[in-house]
Computed example of a mutant assay.
Amino acid sequence: MRQSSNISDEKAQQSSVSAVVTGAGSGLGYACCQSLLARGYRVTAVDLNLDAWGDGAENLVCEAADVASAADAERILQEHAERWGAPGVLVNCAGVAAPGATLRPDGPMALDEFRRVLEINTVGTFNYLRVAARHMQGGPADADGQRGVIVNTSSVAAFDGMVGQAAYSASKGAVAAMTLPLARELGKYGIRVVAIAPGVFSTPMVHGMKEKARDIVSALRPPFPDRLGHPDEFAAMVLSIVDQHLLNGVVIRLDGGIRLPPR
């Protein structure tokens, strides 16, 4: 699915920076797209389901794709570059939770269930990162020599995961762990890499959990503020990372001070 409005094919006439956002059909990714568009970015939104965008928006192109597909990532980033030039920002928000016990009455967790979570959360993140970085490498540099900013989504579960979060914690822990080595490698090309580890946010991923898991997660509250996070607060952090050039190679907990209990 591709939707666009008033998009010129002449890159010479386009002065705004462009961005690619995965998981853009809802929750954190949707909020990031809205904030980037409001700032004047031209955005490619990637998700399996982009119905929330309806008829689209000005300076937005929607691409329905599996984030773990190498072919989709290469095609989408190439089309983005041809349309708007190399992306200045990549935000990886695509992810699934899929909570579940390792040992169950009917046997152990199915290996494909564990693999699916890592395939989307970890492989999908690296997939778009690797292709976007290649395009950023040849893009224009600013006064600092910066060519791009990559923001990945980890989770507080990477550090204090609950019972039933083995797959999710592993996938998000990998996203956190790759942050510094990627920042060290890509820095010579003028590309920064930062991860955000959100706490419990009010998103369709949380609300779409099975009832028991949803009730447990939704009841968690940080010391302050006593509520779930809002997606636009995540988007505001993304913009702050884009603006602050000294933020690099770090994982930022955006959680109100919450620490997840064992169960």
Rank of each mutant, 00 (worst) to 15 (best):
R2E: 12
S5F: 10
S5G: 09
S5Q: 15
S8F: 03
D9L: 15
E10I: 12
E10V: 13
E10Y: 04
Q13Y: 01
Q14S: 13
V17L: 13
V21C: 08
L28W: 07
G29F: 08
C32S: 15
C32K: 01
C33Y: 11
L36P: 05
L37V: 09
R39T: 09
R42V: 00
V43R: 01
T44S: 13
T44Y: 12
A45L: 03
L48Q: 10
L48M: 13
N49M: 07
D51T: 14
A52S: 15
A52R: 15
E58S: 13
C62V: 12
C62F: 04
A64F: 00
D66C: 11
D66F: 01
V67D: 06
A68N: 05
H80D: 06
A81P: 02
E82W: 03
G85K: 07
G85M: 10
A86W: 02
A86L: 04
V91P: 08
V91C: 12
G95P: 07
G95S: 10
A97Y: 12
A97K: 00
A98G: 01
P99F: 06
A101W: 05
P105A: 13
D106E: 14
D106C: 02
M109Y: 06
D112W: 01
F114I: 05
E119T: 12
E119S: 12
E119A: 04
I120V: 15
T122K: 00
T125L: 07
F126L: 14
N127E: 05
Y128G: 03
V131P: 07
V131I: 14
A132N: 10
H135P: 02
Q137V: 02
D142N: 15
A143V: 13
R147C: 11
V149Y: 05
I150M: 09
V151E: 07
S155V: 09
F159Y: 13
G161T: 01
M162T: 04
V163G: 01
A166W: 01
A166P: 01
A170F: 06
K172C: 02
K172T: 02
K172G: 03
A174Q: 06
M178Y: 11
P181R: 10
R184A: 09
G187S: 13
G187K: 09
K188F: 02
K188C: 08
Y189L: 12
Y189K: 11
G190R: 08
I191C: 06
V193Y: 01
P198G: 03
F201G: 05
S202E: 14
M205A: 14
V206D: 01
H207Y: 12
H207L: 09
G208Y: 09
M209Q: 13
M209L: 15
K212V: 11
K212P: 02
A213F: 03
A213Q: 08
A213I: 00
R214L: 03
D215F: 00
I216R: 14
V217P: 00
P225W: 03
P225L: 09
D226I: 09
R227L: 02
H230Q: 15
F234K: 08
A235W: 08
V238W: 06
V238A: 07
I241F: 06
Q244E: 13
L246V: 11
N248G: 09
G249C: 04
R253N: 10
L254F: 00
R259N: 02
R259C: 08
L260P: 07
P261M: 09
P261E: 03
P261H: 08
R263V: 05
